[in-house]
Write a protein that binds this DNA or RNA. Structure first.
Lengths: 415, 415
DNA sequence: CGAGATTTTTTCGGAACCCGAAATAAAATG
DNA sequence: CATTTTATTTCGGGTTCCGAAAAAATCTCG
C-alpha cells in the first residue's frame, strides 16, 4: 500500500519540481518556473526565496538576455554550483576514471587510470576504485570542499538497488559490493549503475527533443549492452539492471557466447564474434580476449573494401541486432535507437542488414521510419549519465524542506 | 514538465488511497485504513465521513467478525455497491459477452452471444458489440440504474490510449474504434484493452501473494499473447498495448506465422502451429483456420499416449516458448509465469521443454526456481480484469472531492 | 526628465488540509 | 455498575497553496 500524502510532502514535491525545472534548463525566472510547474507566483516566490536562503539557488544578476522588454526585468535563477559536488566514476575494461562535478553539472576535476581489471581480485578492484576516487576527493579537500555523493558506472549487470555489480565481463569476480565499500571509505552515499543505463540517461539530458520518453541505446563493443527509456523512466529489471539485450536469444543453441550459453545476440555481434566470423572460426570457438578499437576499425575497413568474410561477419552481426530489435519492438513498440560505442564506427556497414532484419519482424512494420543515430564515443555519455544520476539524488535530498539540507551542506566550502 | 501539486490534489490522493485500500480488501475499519495508508485517524475520519455522505462508502453494521475483543468494536466500511456499475465486455473469436458489475465488484447480470467475427465488416462488428451491451444496459435501465462506464477486452493489439483495436486475429478489420463508438452509443466513457493485459490485472487482484509486482501471464491459444506486470504496473507499449510475446522472433526466417512474417514464437506454439507440425505439414504451409479446444485436447492426448509427431509438435512449441521466456528474463529478470488459456491443458507436456529451453538461456539461470502455474479457463480472468480496470477508473473519478461525484451519480438508482 | 505603462516579484488575507491531543462513544470485564 | 479498553470524532494549531493587491523595476512617450 502506497503511503498517504502528508502535508509537508506537498512542499517537498513542489520544491523538487522547481529544482528539476532548473536542472533541465540551467536558468529560469520565477515567472517562467511558475508557468512550467503550474504553481502560482506566490508559491514559487516562497519556495525560491527559501531555497536561495539555503544556498541551493542563486540569482544571476546582470544577466542581460538581449531582449530588453518593457516592464520589470526577470531575474534569472540558477542552481548554485557551490552548493555541493559529486564524483562520477566509470569502470570499464582496463580503464578507470573519476570526475568531480559541481552542483550545476560542470566538470571540476578528473583523474584517469589504466589497470588490468581481469587480473585483479575483488579487493584489488575495489581498492583501485577507492584509490582513484581518493585522489580527486583529496584534491577537493585541499580546497575545502567535500563531495556529497559517488556514482559508479560499470560495464556489466548491477543490482536493482544500485549496491553491487552482480556480473561483469571486465572481471571474473561476481557480486562485487562497490557501493557499500565506497560509502564506507568516504562516508558519503554511493551507487553502482550499469553503463548503458547511464548512456540512456545522458542521451535524455543531451538531446531531449530526440530522446524523450521512449528510446533504445544499444552499445556495440566487446559485449552488447542496452539502456532503455520507457515512458520517460529508465527501464530496469526487477532484481538487476536488466535490459540485457545482448543475451536475448538470436539462434537457439547457436554460436557460443562469452556468457557460456549459446545463441545470444552477443555471440553474433560482439567484437569477438565479428573476429571469429571474419577469420573463419567456428561457432564453437571459445570467445577470444577483447580487441582494441583499432582492430575493429581495421576489420570494418576490410569489410568496406571487399565483400569477403569480413563483410559477411558484419552482415551476421547486423542480422542478429536487427532481429533482436524486432523482438524488442514487438514488446515495447518501435522507438528511436542510438547505436553507441566502437561498433558505431561500422554503422554504415551494419545499417542495411539491421534494417533488413527488422523489416522481417512483426515489430518492425515501418522499419524505414525508425530513426538510428550512431555515436562512437561512449565514455563522455557514461560519465554524464552517472553525474546526472548522482545530482538528481542530491536534488532529492535537498528537496526535504527546511534545515534538513545540512547533510548536503557539510561538504560545502567553509568560506 | 510534471505539473505542481496543488492543495486539493492532496485530498484527492488521500481519498484515492482510502478507496484503493477498500477495493483491495472488501472491508476495513477506519483504524485499519489509517494503519494501511499511514494517515492519521482524524484524517481518515474526515475522509470517510464525507465519502459516506456522498454514498461512496457504507458502514457494514452488525458485521460480527467473530473475535469479540474488549473495547469499542470497529465499524467495517465497504464500497457501496449501489453507487455505480460498469459493463465488462469481452470480444474474442466468435464470442461476445457483456457483464454488469456493481461498484463493489459483484456480477449483477450478463449476456453471452456467438457470432462470426471473421465474416463481419467493421460496422457489423461494432454494431454487434453495441447490441450486446445494449441488452444488458436496457435491463439495468428497467431497474432504474445506469452503468457509468464500459470496458471492452479484445484479443489483439489495442492502442495505448485505450480507444481502438489496432489489429486482431478475430477479424481482418484494422483500427476499429470501439471506444468512441461505444461512448457515443451510450453516452458514457468506454475503453478497449488487450485481453492478456486484463488477465494480468485479474491475476493481481485474485492472488496478490503470488502475483504482486512482477509476473508474466502467457496465453496459449490460437495465437500467443502475454500480459506483463512490472513494478506493480501493467506493462504496455508506447503506442500500443505492446507485450507481443507471440511475435518475438524464435527462429529468424523460420516458420510462417499468421501475421505474415516468419519465425515468430507463435508460428511454433500457436494452435495452428501445433496442428501443422503434428500433421507433418511444412513450415511454409499457410496457417490454417482456428481450432476448437476439443481438437487441441485430442492432440495433447495423442502426444501423451505416444512419442510420435504429436509429441514432437508440443516439444517444438515448448522450446519456442522457453527460449522466448529466456529472452524476456534477460530483459526483465525472472519472475513467476502464469500459463493461461487452452494451451494450459497441455502444460504437463509443455513444461519440460519450456524449462529445458529456459535453462539454455542467460536469463534463465535458475530455471528450476521459476514458478509456473497453469489456468486453462481464461474467460473469467479477462472479464474480471476488465471489470477491475473499469472500476478503478470510476474510483479515479469519484476521488475528486466534493460534489464532482455527480457525474457518476447520474446513473444511480432514483430511489 | 517625469508621469504613466508594463511586467515581475513580494506581501497579505483566506481557505483547505493534515496532525496530535483531548473528548466522546461503545463495548467487555469483574 | 464502575473500570478498562479500543474506536472514532472533535478541536486547536500549524503548514501550504492561491488570488488579489501592493511594491519594485524598468521602458515609453510627451
Amino acid at each position: 500500500m502506497t503511503v498517504g500524502v502528508r502535508h509537508d510532502d506537498l512542499r517537498r514535491r513542489n520544491r523538487a519540481l522547481v529544482l528539476s525545472a532548473l536542472r533541465a534548463a540551467e536558468q529560469h525566472s520565477r515567472t517562467a518556473i511558475a508557468g512550467l510547474t503550474g504553481l502560482s507566483n506566490s508559491t514559487i516566490s516562497a519556495i525560491t526565496s527559501s531555497m536561495i536562503e539555503e544556498g541551493v539557488l542563486v540569482e544571476l544578476k546582470g544577466g542581460e538576455n538581449g531582449l530588453a522588454r518593457r516592464g520589470r526585468p526577470q531575474v534569472a535563477l540558477a542552481l548554485n554550483p557551490e552548493l555541493a559536488s559529486v564524483v562520477a566514476v566509470v569502470l570499464t575494461l582496463n580503464h578507470l576514471s573519476a570526475t568531480i562535478i559541481d552542483y550545476a553539472g560542470n566538470v571540476v576535476d578528473d583523474e584517469i587510470e589504466r589497470l588490468s581489471t581481469q587480473a585483479m581480485d575483488r579487493e584489488a578492484l575495489i581498492g583501485a576504485v577507492i584509490g582513484c576516487v581518493r585522489r580527486v576527493v583529496d584534491r577537493q579537500r585541499e580546497k575545502g570542499r567535500r563531495p556529497s555523493r559517488i556514482a559508479l558506472a560499470v560495464q556489466g549487470i548491477t543490482s536493482s538497488d544500485s549496491s553491487s555489480m552482480l556480473w561483469s565481463p571486465i572481471t571474473p569476480q561476481q557480486n562485487t559490493p562497490f557501493a557499500p565499500a565506497l560509502a564506507a571509505a568516504f562516508g558519503i552515499p554511493a551507487t553502482v549503475e550499469n553503463d548503458c543505463n547511464m548512456i540512456a540517461v545522458a542521451l535524455k539530458w543531451r538531446d531531449p527533443k530526440r530522446y524523450r520518453d521512449d528510446f533504445f541505446a544499444v552499445m556495440l563493443s566487446d559485449g552488447i549492452g542496452m539502456g532503455l527509456m520507457t515512458k520517460g523512466q529508465l527501464f530496469s529489471g526487477t532484481h538487476s539492471s536488466g535490459g540485457e539485450f545482448g543475451h536475448m536469444i538470436h539462434i537457439p543453441d547457436g554460436a557460443l557466447c562469452r556468457c557460456g550459453r549459446r545463441g545470444c545476440i552477443e555471440a553474433y555481434a560482439g567484437n569477438y564474434a565479428l573476429m571469429r566470423n571474419a577469420s573463419g572460426g567456428t561457432e564453437d570457438d571459445r570467445p577470444a580476449a577483447d580487441f582494441s578499437q583499432a582492430e575493429i576499425q581495421k576489420l570494418a575497413d576490410a569489410a568496406r573494401a571487399a565483400g569477403g568474410p569480413e563483410r559477411a561477419a558484419f552482415v551476421k552481426a547486423g542480422r542478429a541486432i536487427g532481429f533482436g530489435l524486432g523482438s524488442l519492438f514487438a514488446l515495447f513498440d518501435p522507438a528511436p535507437v542510438a547505436i553507441v560505442g566502437p561498433g558505431a564506427l561500422a554503422f554504415d556497414i551494419l545499417e542495411e542488414p539491421i534494417r533488413d532484419a527488422i523489416a522481417r519482424t512483426a515489430g518492425g512494420q515501418h522499419s524505414g521510419a525508425i530513426s538510428f543515430e550512431a555515436e562512437p564515443n561512449e565514455m563522455p555519455l557514461i560519465r554524464q549519465g552517472s553525474a546526472m544520476t548522482a545530482l538528481t539524488r542530491v536534488d532529492a535530498e535537498i528537496v526535504a524542506p527546511g534545515p534538513v539540507t545540512e547533510q548536503v551542506l557539510k561538504g560545502r566550502k567553509v568560506a
